[in-house]
Design a protein around this nucleic acid. Structure first.
Lengths: 114, 114
DNA sequence: CGTGTAAGGAATTCTGACACG
DNA sequence: CGTGTAAGGAATTCTGACACG
C-alpha cells in the first residue's frame, strides 16, 4: 500500500449514516463504541462525525466480537494488544532491514578483497 | 493497487459538502459538472449524492482545466480520449502477457529436447 | 452493560429558477 | 457558458435522557 492509497483508507470523510449502512450497525451502536474509546471519528466544524474506511473495518471487527458476547472493555484490551504487536513487528522489520544492509556491505567488501 | 484498495478509491460514500471542502469547489460547481456528464455520483435512497475519492481526483483535474479556461465540453472530450487510451494500454498489456506466456512455453519445450 | 427511542434544534442537501455576463 | 443566490422542503445529525434488562 503506497502513501496515496493509505491516505484513502485513513481519510475521515464518511458520515455516520453511510457507516451505518456499510456496517449494518445502528447509529446508537456506532456512537456508543466511540464513547467506549473503540473508535475516534473526526469532528468537523459543526460537530458532525466523519469516519475512515479504516474505522469501518474496525467497526466490523467490533460487531463480530460483540456477536460472540465479548464486552467493549475486552475488545478495547484486545485492540491495544494488537496495536502493540504491530508496533513490535514494525520495529523488528526495521532491525531486519538494517542487518541485511550490513550483511550486504560486508559481502561487497570481501568481494573487493579477492 | 490490489482489489481492496481499489474498492476504497472507487467506493461512493462521500457527501457533496465534504467533496466541496476537499476540492475547494462550490456545491453549485460540483453539481454543474455532473450535469455536463463530467462526473457521475451515486444517489442513495433519498437522492443524496455520494462521491468516491476517484471522483474527487477527477474534480481536481477539472478545476485545473477550468482555470486554464477550458470549457466543460472540451474537458469531456479530453476525458474520453484518456479513457480510450487507458483501454488500449490495458489490452496491449494482456497481449504482451499472452505472448510472454507462449515464449516461455517454447523455451521449456526446447530445453526438453536437449 | 449495551441498545432502543422520542425530543428539539441545527446544519445539509435537493430541485427549479432567476440573474449576470 | 459557468456560477451565484434565495426559496421551501425533506432528510441527517447531534446531545441528553429515560427505558429495559
Amino acid at each position: 500500500m503506497d502513501k496515496q492509497e493509505r491516505s484513502y483508507k485513513d481519510k475521515k470523510v464518511i458520515s455516520i449514516g453511510t457507516v451505518s449502512e456499510l456496517t449494518g450497525l445502528s447509529l446508537r451502536q456506532i456512537r456508543y463504541y466511540e464513547e467506549r474509546k473503540l473508535i475516534a471519528p473526526f469532528r468537523n466544524d459543526h460537530g458532525t462525525r466523519k469516519y475512515s474506511f479504516n474505522d469501518i473495518e474496525t467497526l466490523m471487527d467490533i460487531a463480530d466480537k460483540r456477536e460472540d458476547g465479548v464486552q467493549t472493555t475486552e475488545i478495547l484490551k484486545e485492540m491495544r494488544l494488537q496495536e502493540r504487536k504491530r508496533e513490535r513487528e514494525s520495529k523488528d522489520d526495521i532491525k531486519k532491514k538494517m542487518l541485511q544492509g550490513q550483511l550486504n556491505a560486508q559481502f561487497r567488501n570481501r568481494r573487493g578483497q579477492l
